[in-house]
Simulated scan of single mutants.
Amino acid sequence: MKTFTPKPADLTHDWYIIDATDVVLGRLATQAAVLLRGKNKPTFAPHADSGNHVIIINADKIALTGNKMGKELYSHSGRPGGLRRDSYAELLANKPERIILAAVKGMLPKNRLSKVQLDRLHIYRGAEHPHTPQTPQVFEIAQVSQQAK
């Protein structure tokens, strides 16, 4: 049996939409990373860019488990004195997109494809998004937070 290698003509980039209401951050990030890499397709190859576009709506209604509200998210600009730290509680109120972006970025491989795949992630705070002409498929995450019940 021959190994299948996808050609550039075989690669398609589908659109998926995920509602983040009461979904635990880690579960959302893993499912989004799988869709961004294209691992849900039978034509997946780790070296080929077969990823999908992922739209995440209601980012401000995400569930954080454990003691994450007391912890901080660190990022560095690469310049001297460029260390930035923000608490998760502060970010959830002001910029929840950054929490999800950091979680998904950590679950993607550390190579040249990760930037291309991360550019296909679209995160929105509310339920509205400008990507309706692309007709995204709804991707349902069945397991929601136990605290939300």
Rank of each mutant, 00 (worst) to 15 (best):
Y16Q: 11
T12C: 05
A103L: 03
S114Q: 13
A32K: 04
H76Y: 13
V23L: 12
Q137I: 08
P96W: 02
A89G: 08
A48K: 12
K7A: 13
P130G: 11
T65F: 06
V138H: 07
T5R: 10
P109I: 00
N52C: 02
V23M: 02
I17S: 06
Y124I: 05
L101Y: 11
R112F: 02
M69Q: 13
G106H: 02
A148F: 04
A93R: 12
H47V: 13
P96A: 04
Q134T: 01
P136S: 03
V54I: 11
F4M: 13
V138S: 08
G126P: 00
I18W: 03
G78F: 09
H76C: 09
N58A: 00
G106N: 07
R37T: 09
P8M: 10
Q147Y: 02
P136W: 06
K115R: 07
H53A: 07
K149E: 14
S77G: 10
M107I: 02
A48Q: 14
L28N: 03
K71T: 11
L83I: 09
L92M: 15
V24R: 03
P80V: 10
I55V: 14
P6G: 12
D60H: 13
L108R: 03
L28K: 03
Q31M: 14
V144D: 09
A103Y: 04
V54C: 09
I100P: 03
E90P: 00
T43F: 04
R79Q: 13
A142F: 00
A93H: 09
T43G: 04
P80H: 08
K61R: 12
A59P: 00
T135V: 05
H122K: 11
R37L: 12
I57L: 13
G82C: 04
H122S: 03
P8A: 10
H131N: 12
H122N: 05
M1T: 09
V138W: 00
D22I: 04
V116N: 02
S87T: 15
G82K: 09
E97T: 06
L108D: 05
L83W: 10
A59T: 01
A48I: 10
V116T: 06
Q134R: 04
Q31T: 13
I56G: 06
T132E: 15
V34W: 04
A45I: 05
Q134V: 00
R37M: 13
I57C: 12
K115M: 02
P130N: 11
A45T: 09
K39Q: 11
S114V: 01
R120C: 03
D60G: 03
R85A: 15
K68H: 07
D10W: 07
P46R: 13
I17C: 11
D60L: 02
S87I: 01
A127W: 03
V138A: 09
P6K: 08
N40T: 14
A102Q: 12
G126C: 03
S145P: 03
A127E: 15
A33G: 10
K68W: 11
A89D: 08
K2H: 10
A127V: 08
P109M: 05
I57E: 15
Q147M: 02
V104S: 06
A63V: 00
P42R: 05
I57Y: 11
